[in-house]
Design a protein around this nucleic acid. Sequence first.
DNA 1: CTAATCCCGACGGAATCCGTCGGATTTAGC
DNA 2: GCTAAATCCGACGGATTCCGTCGGGATTAG
Lengths: 176, 176
Amino acid sequence: MRSIFPTSGAVHFSTRGEYGVRLMVELARHSGEGAVSLAEIADHEELPRPYLEQLVVSLRDAGLVTSTRGAHGGYALTRQPDAIHMSEVIRALEGPLAPMVCASEDPIHAAACDRTAFCTVNPLWMKVREAVAGALDSVTLADLTHPRGTAHPFHAGTSTDPVVVHAEHELAIPTP
Amino acid sequence: MRSIFPTSGAVHFSTRGEYGVRLMVELARHSGEGAVSLAEIADHEELPRPYLEQLVVSLRDAGLVTSTRGAHGGYALTRQPDAIHMSEVIRALEGPLAPMVCASEDPIHAAACDRTAFCTVNPLWMKVREAVAGALDSVTLADLTHPRGTAHPFHAGTSTDPVVVHAEHELAIPTP
DNA sequence: CTAATCCCGACGGAATCCGTCGGATTTAGC
DNA sequence: GCTAAATCCGACGGATTCCGTCGGGATTAG
């Protein structure tokens, strides 16, 4: 029997993605104020600091944050919050968005699947990847800094039409 | 160091999803011809039959296929291929589409996250879930049965505008 | 009766996830 | 200089999930 609420599923963000985004949001909130230490963020967000140290490496390697060492050091964004798309952040933290090797944009990895020549389901995975990429592209860090309700939600994306919210994507599950 | 091509990522389909979809496509190809045995499918798709036996349970429980036991038994779709949306198939195989608990459509599970009251990033996860759900809703089994090239790709969905393919979602990765 | 097939539960190696730990290095302030 | 604050780095290890395998039971056509 599969668990009631699977921690993993077709689309799933690990704690790397979750914590990493929260970390970036905190940096965005202090944008322009100089470096913020991981200790402050870990404290404010109630996250394990040693683990954040691991995550932030990926963000630094991706060129999304800079670090200043020593006392009063910390991290800061390399760009304005509204210039950082969530697709970059998620990719830095969780890796390529491709749901399977054959759906990779990179031809080299796509070729790793020897079924691609005759496979008829590949377009499905491609479509899913593009949908996720589009969603993540349409949101910037700046969109996530405002406390709930006090400010505008997403400026319903230019390319994405709002419409037709698919209700009931979750099955009704008996209360535990 | 994270592996070059992570088998897991933000959006990732396990072998359950992959094999299960291929199984369903095979059933769709033989739609109306009576039951197809797992042995035939396992042989044609080069998949481990015992494993398929496990997967198909989820599909049967979800009401997507019926089974007939005994010799000459097997499985068949319960509906026409064009009436089966991939969202149902994937959900049956991999569970809820919610990328995290707080993004569940079901209010009961959504409440499991105590940060929702003040969390500013939740809308991001919601948007991703809706994007995936929309993509999977817009494709039916019938769309996946035609061999590559010989027939129409997706009939650019009614609600989804074709446009603006986001190129270069994958980073260039040095050859292995 | 026999062979084919679905059905069911349990098991186990491998990989991944989620951090923890200990220390090395750099820097600001005294 | 010394010290304390902070980034940096590599390794480790428990828990969980993934990816099947295995053995056997039940059902049915011929």
